[in-house]
Amino acid sequence: MLLIPCPHCGVRPETEFVYGGDATVRRPDPKTASLDAWAAYIYERDNPKGPHTELWLHASGCHSWLVVERDTVTHAIGQVRQARDAAS
């Protein structure tokens, strides 16, 4: 089971978190986005082998959405930031 260091709550087991997918996906501007760009944003995700930047919600804790660096091969957890800080 993964251990994820929440910046608020400390190191916590995976069962306290909800997975939120690829954190690098950006929502295009709906006024200008092409149909293809919008479809890619909604439906298309990479399935990388190796480093992955992904969202996790600390659902049984502080309710922060976190941006977590995780290696999909080794499952090693790298940097963990609050999504709010990463987004702004």
Partner: peptide
């Protein structure tokens, strides 16, 4: 959870 996602990641 989903509302928090929008609040924290899209519209901080």
């Amino acid at each position: 959870n989903w509302l928090e996602d929008w609040r924290q990641t899209e519209w901080p």
